[in-house]
Write a protein that binds this DNA or RNA. Sequence first.
DNA 1: AACTAGTTTAAAATCATTCTAAAGAGCCTT
DNA 2: AAGGCTCTTTAGAATGATTTTAAACTAGTT
Lengths: 137, 137
Amino acid sequence: MTPKAHFAEKLRLAGLRPTRQRVAIATLLLDGRHRHVTADSLTEEITAAGLHVSGGTVYNTLNQFTEAGLLRRVMVHNDYSLFDTNTDHHHHFYEAENDQLVDIPHDDVILAQLPAAPDGHEIKAVDVVIHIQSKNS
Amino acid sequence: MTPKAHFAEKLRLAGLRPTRQRVAIATLLLDGRHRHVTADSLTEEITAAGLHVSGGTVYNTLNQFTEAGLLRRVMVHNDYSLFDTNTDHHHHFYEAENDQLVDIPHDDVILAQLPAAPDGHEIKAVDVVIHIQSKNS
DNA sequence: AACTAGTTTAAAATCATTCTAAAGAGCCTT
DNA sequence: AAGGCTCTTTAGAATGATTTTAAACTAGTT
Ligand SMILES: [Mn+2]
Ligand SMILES: [Mn+2]
Ligand SMILES: [Zn+2]
Ligand SMILES: [Zn+2]
């Protein structure tokens, strides 16, 4: 199966029509490498690949991929959105000083006890962000 | 001690000159009630109290209070900043559907194991956000 | 090939937040 | 109590990420 067909199928399964733009972005982001991207960094990757996708579509696609569970949004500040190509359950170190986000393996954090969700609600996800800073600062 | 003098002193201790605007905001936010505010909701409170503080100063003051440890910034989405008047160590439930943030008592979450911070770094804070949703949705 | 619904586009709009530069207010010294 | 120095506040402009717009395009279907 050609890579293009592979990602097209992946998008169809996610309920997204495999347009040229979405396939291009999927090829860049959904290849199994785990990393964190912004609309801006993704646009740079697209350009580096000799392609062009409009700004609006970059934002739309990141939101749609996230909605479809192909990406995960990471919340560490309010400056701009961060997306994680690793959708497995894992947590993060965040160093505000240089806006550095680092994955923590799933098993390195153990939540021994969680509260029950409020009445009529259920837990959808548990996000742990460990804020760190340089020792000599 | 008059309330005004009380908050003025609190601000001085935090290294902030007790201006009329800062004392007004401290009176509203630092009275011991635990809640979550935005620049917008705070402005409404100020107006409701028959006062006026410029938008820029509301933002500056929230940032300065946070910097001084009188408030805490809570990160649950990228739409606008949320500030917590409870600076004690505690975690949050967050329901995205209606942007609802609820405190979780400190003892209801037990982190049995944490990873070591990366070399040369130390842990500053651990934030746990439990995302919840309505059961029938 | 024609049709339709969904998608992309460049450009404008939105909106929270920050910046600007001028006016005002704490606070220390006299 | 006045003067002066610095910090703060202000209204308004600027910024910048993100969303919206309406027209042009395209994937998928007949
Ligand atoms: Mn990550
Ligand atoms: Mn913004
Ligand atoms: Zn990650
Ligand atoms: Zn709280």
